[in-house]
């Protein structure tokens, strides 16, 4: 019999689903474009050119103001939208992934402890409830207000925002896994609590963690865009999707494309991550298995 890892089985199942495959492919293309932004959009995203302000994009090719090198047009300062979109995406994705990762590490840590040790459960989960009571954006605003506006601080804020939802979901899963007989069996073989948590419970909680993380990346990307839009996320002139929308507000009627283009980028990314997360849950969650 051939050795089959559950990760590979999961991918096989994922590609059997058309919608999930499409989302996966879109995200891969997006990642490639964004990671190699300098290749695909060689124009400096911060290069202003007052002469070329508010050029239309490819949808208005007949317009004499259209310039083929700015195929998505330019913004109110004459910066190339395509270049800003890709370079801004770097920030969005980086913050999305890093914040999710930090939230994941701490959330998983707290969730594992709370689920395994009954004594810690109340202390940890009540603290998480306190974090939960703040509306997400408000909490992030509060943290940024305390730490000061910078990309790093926005990332920290979004990480903290992500912790309680991770902790809560993973605690629930741990409570379930703890009841399984193999945990008792491993205990009866003399394994330490640390080893049981770090190996046996964690690996069984992994599917849950992957699913929440995928969903959470979308949330984090949305959060950084929101914070930038509010002016407390990524500082100007650094390009960022939320910031692009924010600065284009003034031109909303003259050039709505400046809002629509980054808006579409955010929507596509978030929807793709969410659908992917949703399908992954169907595949990985043992409770939903057919």
């Amino acid at each position: 019999m051939k050795r089959e890892s559950w990760i590979r089985t999961a991918f096989q199942k994922l590609f059997r689903n058309k919608l999930a495959t499409v989302c996966f492919v879109i995200l891969i293309i997006e990642f490639i474009l964004i990671i190699f932004a300098d290749k695909f959009a060689p124009i400096d995203p911060n290069l202003t050119n007052v002469a070329d302000r508010l050029r239309p994009g490819f949808w208005d090719k007949m317009n004499p103001k259209y310039m083929p090198e700015h195929w998505l047009g330019t913004d109110e300062l004459g910066r190339d939208v395509w270049s800003r979109l890709l370079h801004g995406g770097q920030v969005s994705l980086a913050v999305g992934f890093i914040a999710t990762f930090i939230g994941l590490v701490f959330g998983t840590f707290f969730g594992l402890l709370a689920g395994y040790y009954k004594r810690l459960d109340n202390i940890i989960m009540r603290f998480m409830d306190v974090l939960f009571t703040f509306p997400g954006v408000l909490l992030a605003l509060l943290i940024v207000a305390m730490l000061g506006v910078s990309t790093r601080n926005a990332t920290i804020a979004i990480s903290i925002w992500a912790i309680p939802s991770f902790a809560r979901m993973i605690r629930g899963r741990v409570l379930q896994i703890k009841q399984e007989e193999y945990i008792t069996a491993i205990q009866s073989l003399g394994a330490t609590n640390f080893w049981i948590i770090a190996k046996h419970i964690l690996i069984n909680a992994m599917p849950t963690i992957i699913v929440i993380a995928t969903m959470r990346i979308a949330g984090s990307i949305l959060s950084i865009a929101t914070l930038s839009f509010l002016g407390v996320g990524v500082p100007v002139p650094q390009a960022e999707w939320g910031g692009m929308i924010s600065s284009a507000k003034t031109q909303m009627y003259k050039a709505p494309n400046l809002i629509i283009v980054p808006g579409i980028a955010i929507i596509i990314t978030v929807i793709c991550f969410n659908i992917l997360g949703d399908k992954l849950r169907d595949i990985l969650d043992p409770n939903l298995k057919d």
């Binding site: 069996a185 009866s188 073989l189």
Partner: peptide, 15 residues
């Protein structure tokens, strides 16, 4: 050492 009643559930399914 202890041997359990249910061999189906006494091994970690993911290892």
């Amino acid at each position: 050492g202890m041997i359990f009643q249910e061999p189906m559930t006494a091994l970690n399914p993911l290892l």
